[in-house]
Nucleic acid binder design. Structure first.
Lengths: 207, 207, 207, 207
DNA sequence: TATGAATGAGCATTCATTCAT
DNA sequence: CATGAATGAATGCTCATTCAT
């Protein structure tokens, strides 16, 4: 009469846990073989569930499943960076802490990073990815805008937007370099990026 | 009696023109709907050719077709940047000219850029894309290494590599911002990026 | 409330029945239009199933499907002949009964015979067919070798092999003749063949 | 002004030679990879001609090309056997000589034999192959009918038909055995077959 | 005449998705 | 709730065949 509480915990899990189970599997599979080359069977197998379960708890379609993966990973990254950059004194410190959180999250959740940055940058889901990245860039832009001097906040915001885009792009570039064999130490990556964008190449070369 | 010299040019073209025709169509289609969601029928239709022509002049498989697209667009970008950055006096000038060429090429060949940077970052062709980007980053690293002072060239190279990765990433981020509604003026983009990486955020904010 | 037990039996059948269903259809289609000219669509339609079912229960590829057909039909023939020839007294009787079973099986399963003897005698599957036929010839050779006198069993085997090849070939030739309008009566066919190979043309003509 | 009489003899051959060239190539290619797996490109390449030439001189379609190959090889075999069996005294001698010619032709023209006996025994061309073989069987039946005693020629013919079918089948079976590693000596093959069908297994085992 | 170049049409195979249980 | 079994719809690729030269 007691429901089987086997090691796998097969039966009767609350929906939230099921969704997490499904998303975890999806993120892992998508990051490994790529969204298009991954089959729903693969996801189901990775999750240890049947395919209909994946559909039930994954949004009902493969595309929606990826969408949810992207959202979750973007949120994770955003939250992490926001929290870290939150309450420090100097701009440089806030930048440093934010970047460190960025790199640390990447390193810890490589699968999520891969789903967020390598999948589906064209096609139907391009917008989703674009939005996810835009949120991050926007948050960084907020940060920068608050620091840029001048009487006109609108002008500061207008300048901050492309700077944030470049800054985040630079971080991504460094992340790629890291993944391709560069250091994985978040602190080192952070200092490299600060050297580039904070100090400026100009002064860097005079060192 | 006049041979059909119509715009479509249905019959009897030299192989080089055919290949260009096929690659042009492929780049366009791949950039619009994405490699995986694009069918060879789509490419053929876009090219105004039959599918066998696409196979004959496109390398024999869909994957090889994308490979050739990637190579062509990477070469285009690399050549453009290399030529522009070539023979100027100051480092800043060379950086400025190189960046300007980078942004100008992107703006002029948005489809190619998309194929190069947004397709196939996972799966079998990931390496091809990675190599293409690595060549560009490598070229930038050469440029930077030559400018960095210090007695040890190896150390300069070691520092230049991540800086180049970050620099190119920043350029890509700005390119995204440009595509998403920011300015398309190569000069403006260049100055933005120079402000970020050359001058440094530090001094930028003191302005 | 009654589950659909219609003749077509569309849903939920045990795998064995499905496999039989698929193989039956394949044998029929292959024998009618030939392996190469038959499409998997044809097989699916003949089976009253969807194409994926044919792949699932037919081995996963067209070639493997034919392979399984060949094996099944060869087994059927071999079993039938072996059982019949088994335990009789005189050599002539055993030969007669074996031949009778051979012809009876052919007549009853013309499609299977066609798949076994007329498909794929070239190409990748030639070996499979060759092996299937060789097993039959080998069994007949065993039979003959046991009857041939002489002290040296190896020599008997060496002589039996080509004789068996000829004997089976003669049976096949008669089967063709039968299919082309000759009698289909297994007994009559058997006597004809016995007259040829047992009595010998020599004495036949003296009758 | 003189036409190029290069080693390959490329230009301006009489149609008959062209047809032979094409058929030779086709027989070779078909026998090597099988009719269905052979492409017209393969045939053209083997012939050292362009594909349109193959169409022009090969009957206009792949199927017709095979048809002509089959006919030619069947004629070759039939002529050879008929000539050999023609004018001898005893039945046994005529049978022996005919068989010898049969085996000799097989051995000498394995490609032709393969085209005749292994290709297209199902599908559209089955009839063609069947007819070719039937002509051979019919000729043998004529031979046998003339030798069978009895007052009624029709009865003799009726008996001769299945016997001939069996006899030719036996020869084919031996030919297969020969190709699979048995002796290739026509005389040995002939004696084996004579032992089987002329003397009879009955007396063979008393030896 | 002889051919390089072009295509229409077909076919094996794979999955995302959904019932019947 | 959970699933094994089933399928509709695509898609990559090939090849016999035919023009334009």
């Amino acid at each position: 009469m007691v429901p089987p509480t086997s090691a796998t915990g097969r039966r009767r899990l609350p929906p939230e846990q099921r969704e997490r189970q499904v998303l975890d599997a999806a993120v892992r599979v998508f990051s490994r073989v790529g969204f298009h080359d991954a089959s729903m069977d693969d996801v189901a197998e990775q999750a240890g569930l049947s395919k209909p379960m994946v559909y039930t708890h994954g949004g009902g379609s493969k595309e929606e499943l990826l969408r949810r993966c992207i959202r979750r990973e973007a949120d994770r990254l955003l939250t992490s960076v926001s929290l870290a950059a939150g309450a420090d004194r100097t701009t440089e410190d806030r930048l440093r802490r934010g970047l460190r959180a960025f790199f640390a999250t990447l390193t810890t959740h490589r699968d999520g990073w891969s789903v967020l940055y390598r999948q589906a940058r064209t096609g139907t889901l391009a917008d989703e990815v674009h939005d996810a990245r835009a949120r991050i860039v926007g948050r960084v832009a907020d940060l920068l805008a608050a620091e840029l001097p001048g009487p006109d906040p609108a002008a500061a915001r207008a300048l901050a937007a492309p700077l944030a885009a470049g800054l985040v792009g630079a971080a991504e570039g460094l992340a790629d370099w890291s993944a391709a064999g560069g250091t994985e130490d978040p602190d080192a990556l952070t200092e490299l990026l600060l050297g580039l964008v904070w100090t400026g190449l100009d002064r860097l070369r005079e060192r």
